[in-house]
């Protein structure tokens, strides 16, 4: 649980950290778009894209292999595409349980996995170098509907509430889980299951009520449904160029991919 809910932002003072959040957001979106549009069979393009993301990570003070490992979090979701090799027509490569895997299907599946992994790296690079509030602000100044931004903000806020409440409950239970020498302790399996069940119910009610209190506290301080942030100057030309650079490199890779490797 700790892994999935962790605060992603890592404070730092790199070039990428200092870049205007609006530019970073647009760059990340364009990179993801580019990755998704990579021709399926252009295998040599993938390591190149990875090298691009990896070097950006290093500039941002994150080890490239760590970013890759963090992004592996999305791999289980690519299982949704696992039926592809068996449903697409093509030359049979191997068979399991009477199901034939086709070459085109396997290639498509491989491309889905690689693209998901690379896109996740682009997104993680954005969230590890940008505080979440800056990200929300960037989204709203890029004209994302305010309701959507607010929902995102609350979801993030309350994920932490939920995680904290869960940790507190578990800590409370462990702290009183004493054992006596020569005495069978820990209670029956049934009792332990009951305790765990009650804790989950408790977790829900407590998180719900705590989020209510957070909301009331925000109302009490004048919250009207709109997040206000500090206004910032328009991004400089220099910042725009820094944001455009990786996109241009990606476009270059894509052009080469289309010309050389897409047949």
């Amino acid at each position: 649980m700790a892994g999935a809910f962790q605060e992603r932002y890592r404070p730092g003072d790199s070039r990428i950290h200092r870049l205007d959040p609006r530019i970073k957001t647009v760059t990340a979106l364009l990179l993801i778009l580019g990755i998704v549009l990579t021709p399926e069979h252009a295998w040599p393009a993938y390591p190149l894209i990875w090298a691009l993301l990896g070097s950006m990570a290093e500039i941002g003070g994150i080890r490239a292999w760590r970013l890759g490992r963090m992004a592996a979090l999305v791999l289980p979701f690519t299982l949704a595409a696992v039926a592809l090799p068996f449903t697409m027509p093509g030359r049979t490569v191997f068979e399991i349980l009477g199901l034939a895997a086709s070459d085109t299907g396997l290639a498509r599946f491989g491309a889905v996995v690689l693209k998901s992994w690379l896109s996740a790296q682009a997104a993680l690079l954005l969230t590890t170098t940008t505080p979440f509030t800056d990200l929300l602000w960037a989204l709203s100044s890029l004209r994302v509907p305010p309701t959507l931004v607010t929902i995102l903000g609350f979801t993030y806020r309350y994920l932490h509430t939920l995680k904290e409440e869960a940790e507190r409950l578990i800590r409370a239970r462990d702290s009183r889980s004493g054992t006596l020498p020569g005495q069978k302790s820990g209670g029956s399996l049934w009792w332990r299951a009951q305790v765990a069940g009650a804790m989950i119910g408790n977790l829900f009610i407590r998180s719900y009520e705590r989020s209510e209190r957070v909301y009331l506290a925000m109302r009490a301080r004048g919250y009207t449904g709109e997040m206000k942030g500090f206004s910032r100057a328009a991004p400089t030309i220099n910042a725009m160029l820094s944001g455009a650079l990786p996109v241009l490199v990606l476009v270059l890779i894509e052009v080469i991919a289309v010309i050389l490797w897409s047949s």
């Binding site: 820990g186 209670g187 009650a198």
Partner: peptide
């Protein structure tokens, strides 16, 4: 604990107070 919300984790008071002894068997 300093904060009682860190201490109580059961729906009912009785269950919370009985947890320690029950766990000790």
């Amino acid at each position: 604990f300093q904060n009682p919300d860190d201490q109580l984790f059961s729906p009912r008071v009785y269950q919370d107070v009985a947890f320690g002894p029950l766990h000790m068997g």
